[in-house]
Simulated assay, not measured.
Amino acid sequence: MLLEVAVFNIQSALLAEKAGADRLELCENPKEGGTTPSYGTLKTVIEKVGIPAFPIIRPRGGDFLYDEPSYEVIKKDVLLCKELGFKGAVTGLLNRDGTVDMERTSRLVELSYPLEITFHRAFDRAKDPLTVMQDLIKCGCTRILTSGQHPSVVEGIDLIKKLIKAAGDQIIILPGSGVRSATIGMLKDAGAREFHSSARRTALSKMEFTVPSMQETLNSLIVDEQEIRAMKQLISE
Results as ranks from 00 to 15, higher is better:
residue 193 R to I: 11
residue 139 C to Q: 05
residue 132 V to A: 15
residue 123 F to C: 02
residue 133 M to R: 08
residue 99 T to R: 05
residue 19 A to H: 03
residue 199 A to F: 04
residue 63 D to C: 03
residue 212 P to N: 14
residue 128 D to S: 15
residue 72 E to D: 12
residue 171 I to M: 11
residue 62 G to V: 11
residue 27 C to S: 03
residue 95 N to P: 01
residue 106 S to Q: 08
residue 58 R to Q: 12
residue 233 Q to E: 15
residue 231 M to V: 09
residue 66 Y to V: 08
residue 175 P to F: 12
residue 99 T to F: 04
residue 225 E to W: 05
residue 55 P to G: 12
residue 86 F to M: 13
residue 213 S to R: 13
residue 138 K to H: 06
residue 69 P to M: 13
residue 220 S to A: 14
residue 73 V to E: 04
residue 84 L to T: 08
residue 102 M to R: 12
residue 116 E to N: 15
residue 47 E to I: 03
residue 95 N to V: 04
residue 213 S to W: 05
residue 22 D to E: 05
residue 136 L to W: 07
residue 48 K to F: 09
residue 105 T to K: 00
residue 13 A to M: 09
residue 75 K to M: 15
residue 174 L to V: 05
residue 127 K to Q: 12
residue 175 P to N: 06
residue 174 L to P: 00
residue 33 G to P: 04
residue 96 R to Y: 08
residue 159 L to D: 10
residue 25 E to W: 10
residue 146 T to W: 08
residue 36 T to L: 02
residue 217 T to A: 14
residue 156 G to W: 08
residue 233 Q to R: 15
residue 68 E to H: 13
residue 9 N to T: 02
residue 91 T to P: 00
residue 66 Y to R: 01
residue 103 E to R: 07
residue 66 Y to C: 10
residue 218 L to G: 03
residue 165 K to P: 02
residue 2 L to A: 12
residue 111 L to H: 02
residue 110 E to F: 04
residue 32 E to W: 10
residue 102 M to W: 02
residue 13 A to D: 06
residue 171 I to T: 02
residue 237 E to C: 13
residue 52 P to V: 07
residue 71 Y to W: 12
residue 47 E to W: 04
residue 55 P to H: 12
residue 202 T to F: 11
residue 140 G to K: 09
residue 52 P to S: 11
residue 52 P to T: 09
residue 51 I to Q: 10
residue 174 L to D: 05
residue 31 K to G: 06
residue 57 I to M: 07
residue 202 T to Y: 05
residue 150 H to G: 07
residue 29 N to F: 07
residue 125 R to V: 15
residue 76 K to V: 01
residue 209 F to Q: 13
residue 76 K to G: 14
residue 203 A to N: 10
residue 44 T to E: 08
residue 185 G to Y: 06
residue 92 G to N: 01
residue 82 K to H: 07
residue 229 R to I: 10
residue 111 L to M: 15
residue 74 I to L: 03
residue 27 C to F: 09
residue 108 L to P: 00
residue 129 P to T: 09
